[in-house]
Design a protein around this nucleic acid. Sequence first.
DNA 1: ACCTATTTTTAGACAAGTCTAAATATTTTA
DNA 2: TAAAATATTTAGACTTGTCTAAAAATAGGT
Lengths: 219, 219
Amino acid sequence: MLLSQTEENYLKAIYSLAYANSNKVSTTLISAALKTKASSVTDMIKKLADKDLVHYKKYQGVSLTEVGQKIAVEIVRKHRLWEVFLVNKLNYNWDEVHELAEQLEHIKSETLIDKLEAFLEFPKHDPHGDPIPDKNGNIEHHKNMMLSSVENGESCVVIGIKDSSDPFLKFLDKLQIQLGSNLKVVSKESFDNSMLIETATGSISISNQISKNLFVKKI
Amino acid sequence: MLLSQTEENYLKAIYSLAYANSNKVSTTLISAALKTKASSVTDMIKKLADKDLVHYKKYQGVSLTEVGQKIAVEIVRKHRLWEVFLVNKLNYNWDEVHELAEQLEHIKSETLIDKLEAFLEFPKHDPHGDPIPDKNGNIEHHKNMMLSSVENGESCVVIGIKDSSDPFLKFLDKLQIQLGSNLKVVSKESFDNSMLIETATGSISISNQISKNLFVKKI
DNA sequence: ACCTATTTTTAGACAAGTCTAAATATTTTA
DNA sequence: TAAAATATTTAGACTTGTCTAAAAATAGGT
Ligand SMILES: [Mn+2]
Ligand SMILES: [Mn+2]
Ligand SMILES: [Mn+2]
Ligand SMILES: [Mn+2]
């Protein structure tokens, strides 16, 4: 099955949205994610349904078939491996690689991505801490522990970013928080849910907005 | 100026054809190179002319403007650097990379190709011996010495392949002839212009077809 | 110079992906 | 449960790049 870039982008979008939300994804949600109009989405959904890549009943939302899901995961795999390449080999910063990976993920080849994976020495996570599916499509999701739920006095390591938008990544750079950073929760304000935390470089106060978007592992 | 992949492919095709032939390129030649119909070429030529990327007068053939040429060379640069990446870093064979580079050359980014070039340590030639234009578009063409014109008793090094088609490259593999191979011309048959040559691994007879397609430098 | 063969262009059509505007279905609210 | 608000689908149009078939221009041969 040879898909167009556009079709691949739809599948990937449906995959992320289905994961983030429940299961069935609405037309408007997709159109927002892809910056198209709802009517365009309806058209494409029909095409994908014809190819048995999505389940679709009018007005009922859409979900991926097994084949559709498999393809979506392959694209996610490509996206994340290319991101690793860009950051680890070409010295891009983690906030600069998304758009490029968005293009590179559509390169068609039977062998390329496995060779790239080997060259990168089989990374398990992309530069934003997101898990990289293996060549069979298996993927180890984060356990859902956010910094916001860590108790006073406890320490943890940053293992992932929920909102990988450029501005948020740049802001983390400024705070000198990276993947692997050790953080100790000193205190929590019940007033606004902000936190005082200790990092390698000092103590900082961070808003709930931020602590809700950092995946951590207790140590 | 943001061009579509198709437009870029046309510019690159016109560039190679203009270089291989005289200067003005005919509609049919382009359609043969791109495997489209002549009528499609006419349509696209008009669009490129509107964008001042080619000079075009009906029935008179087409040639690149300065801007058009600059863009074409940029695409050639990308193509060849990606080929180097695929061969040197991902361990592809030289006969496997063309189609992939054909896709990768269209990735849009201000910074990617210069970072890739640095990562590859500024190679001067692609895996087929073709020169890589620098970031300003300067390109050092081969001096036009083919193995076929080397005299009896003289030695030379293979520095490039004129016809980089998969079958020819595979055939050279079989003969154990690579870029950098030392060849000594033992004798030439006036009958069919075949040559007896000595390589590192032994003596072989090669047809004029082959010797006409190997760029060499005398030593 | 004229007729013929070839090349090139035009005209009209089609598929993919998108849009706007209008119609229809669903959901919310009262 | 019926009106109002919102979401989704349909209808018709447009752009890009392609094609086939037909018309027009050029090039060659006598
Ligand atoms: Mn994409
Ligand atoms: Mn990522
Ligand atoms: Mn190409
Ligand atoms: Mn090459």
